[in-house]
Design a protein around this nucleic acid. Structure first.
Length: 444
RNA sequence: GCAGCAGUAGCUCAGUUGGUUAGAGCACUAGUUUGUGGAACUAGGGGUCGGUGGUUCGAAUCCACCCUGCUGUACCA
């Protein structure tokens, strides 16, 4: 099969990149078609921006100075740095800033696009993946924030999830902001680290997070993570505040009221959700799946959220003088596909071709004639690509999961009655060409 | 990045205290059936045992470093 390995190109993929096969892509297409349907219903415009942007458009202008250029794929082109986009929000901010005068205000757009991140891949997390974004730009109305949650929930349910299988968690940055002010935690770095620690409550639980807020924590593998060094009194106050079951911040009270008007209840106020982004200014939400996700060895893995978002009122402003408050949501589609494929048996209809077997090249005209008739009737059909013996042709048809095979040899051609073999039952029938379409439709 | 575990055929794995030409199942190829797939039987191809260096008469097996994968953790715009 393979002999000389020297100087052969590598068949391996770069770290964090994967081939995606039909089974997965069909589920993805199914999700995408649901997304588009809902987006049209909600009145969002479809937008596409390029994969590459100037690095400073998506990097340096971010207010998140904590990570300047790390984690993105970049290269230099004629003295300018270009980067592959790492999300769809930064390019949107750039787009708004560039086209501000022409676009309607507020501007509602959705986008589907591949994004790239130069970081360590994890279960269901790759360095190249498809993201879905929907954003409202140019409005401070909390109706927008609320509607995004309702909308994403509608998408998930269209995809086959029921209310017990997912939850939208919602909170506001204003809660933690106020909390830290009251506690006199003003050091930006300390605040940021504290937020990051709090973001892990879901995964690690309160005890571990309290360790992180205090002196630090050792994980299961024995690795030690440095703590934030808050006093135990402050940690108690934080825990008490973030365990509250109902919000006391005005923006959330309003949003919850809107939820009620929408008759939307599959959410949960959870002051412990943080979302890593430094650019969020108000509402934050997260989409979580409530069932176990397993890897290919059957182990339950820490899957985390499949997406989230929130209000970022200052991002567009970074590009110039336009004041464009915004709110948006992002979903990692490949992660959703990964989870969904385990949860539901997706019976996605993809009709495999009926195979017309080749007995003799001289009869090609007859085979093609049949093929045209069937294809015109909308039946996926192919003439066996090659001239192998019938056995090979049958094996091929079986392998590609073809529903049926048509045998149209010399005898059949003479009598004008091809033989139709049903590949799941193994039964054969000799039928008139005009009956062929109906018979095949019965099988498919 | 840090930590733990792992890497033997396309896949899943076995390989005893270092010892001849490294094995199995599935998959693949050919045949039993030159007009019949999914079952069975027969035969066959395919491995520098993740890589490099070292210890040794001898390494898949021991040591070092590196690479890759998994899991946790960190970061995640």
């Amino acid at each position: 099969m393979k002999k000389d390995k020297t100087n052969k190109p590598s068949k391996e993929l770069p770290l964090g990149f994967v081939d995606r096969q039909e089974k997965e892509l069909l589920v993805r297409d199914f999700i995408i078609s649901n997304i588009k349907e809902v987006m049209i219903k909600y009145g969002f415009q479809y937008l596409e921006t390029p994969s590459f942007e100037y690095s400073d458009s998506i990097g340096k202008f971010l207010p998140d100075k904590d990570r300047p250029d790390e984690g993105i794929f970049s290269f230099q082109d004629e003295n300018k740095w270009l980067s592959l986009r790492y999300d769809l929000t930064a390019p949107l901010a750039r787009y708004i800033a560039k086209n501000y005068l022409e676009i309607p205000k507020p501007f509602k757009r959705y986008q589907l696009g591949t994004v790239w991140r130069n970081e360590k891949p994890g279960p269901g997390r790759f360095r190249e993946f498809l993201q879905f974004d929907a954003d409202y730009v140019g409005t401070k109305s909390l109706q927008a924030d609320a509607e995004l949650c309702v909308m994403i929930s509608e998408i998930l349910e269209k995809c086959g999830l029921n209310k017990s299988e997912y939850i939208i968690k919602i909170s506001s940055r204003k809660i933690t902001e106020k909390l830290f002010n009251n506690l006199n935690v003003n050091d930006t770095q300390q605040k940021l680290n504290a937020l990051r620690a709090l973001d892990k409550i879901d995964r690690l639980g309160w005890e571990s997070v309290k360790q992180l807020l205090g002196k630090g924590r050792k994980d299961k593998s024995g690795d030690f993570t440095k703590g934030v060094n808050l006093s135990s009194e402050n940690i108690e106050v934080i825990e008490k505040e973030l365990k509250k079951k109902s919000p006391n911040s005005e923006d959330l009270i309003e949003i919850l009221k809107i939820f009620k008007d929408y008759n939307f209840s599959n959410y949960e106020f959870d002051p412990s959700i943080i979302r890593g982004l430094e650019y969020y200014t108000g509402t934050i939400f997260e989409v979580n799946l409530k069932f176990d996700v397993k890897n290919n060895k059957g182990q339950v893995i820490q899957f985390g959220s499949i997406g989230g978002g929130g209000r970022y009122d200052n991002l567009v402003n970074n590009f110039g003088n336009y004041d464009a408050p915004a709110t948006g949501i992002s979903i990692g589609l490949d992660r959703l596909v990964y989870a969904l494929m385990q949860k539901k048996e997706f019976k996605i209809k993809q009709s495999k071709p009926v195979v017309i077997c080749v007995f003799n090249k001289k009869s090609m005209k007859e085979y093609i004639g049949l093929q045209i008739i069937l294809r015109e009737a909308g039946i996926s059909t192919e003439i066996y690509p090659g001239e192998n013996k019938l056995k090979k042709q049958m094996e091929y048809a079986n392998k590609i999961k073809s529903p049926a095979v048509i045998l149209y040899g010399e005898d059949e051609i003479k009598s004008g009655k091809p033989t139709l073999r049903n590949l799941s039952s193994g039964k054969e029938k000799s039928i008139e060409i005009k009956e062929l379409i109906n018979e095949i439709k019965k099988i498919i």
